[in-house]
Amino acid sequence: MILLFLVVLIVLSAYSVFTRDLLHGVIALSAVSLVSALLFYILQAPDVAITEAAVGAGVSTVVFVWAIRSTERKKRQ
């Protein structure tokens, strides 16, 4: 179970790095924080999982989206 989550974590992080569209990266990042919260949960660390869930899924996604929103999309010439 833990190995599967680790593999999924690697795949998601690689995807969020190599994707061209910023927003798909942010969506992948929120999935990464979801899987890492699950991992902490499985490794018998509920309080760390609470923090990771609160920060990862909630706050950091909002901050990323906020940052992307202020950038302009390059007009396709």
């Binding site: 609470i50 609160a54 909630g58 909002v62």
Partner: peptide, 13 residues
């Protein structure tokens, strides 16, 4: 906690 914050992140996206 995850449900609440997941919903917030989802709304932002």
């Amino acid at each position: 906690v995850y449900d609440i914050f997941g919903f917030l992140g989802f709304l932002a996206i």
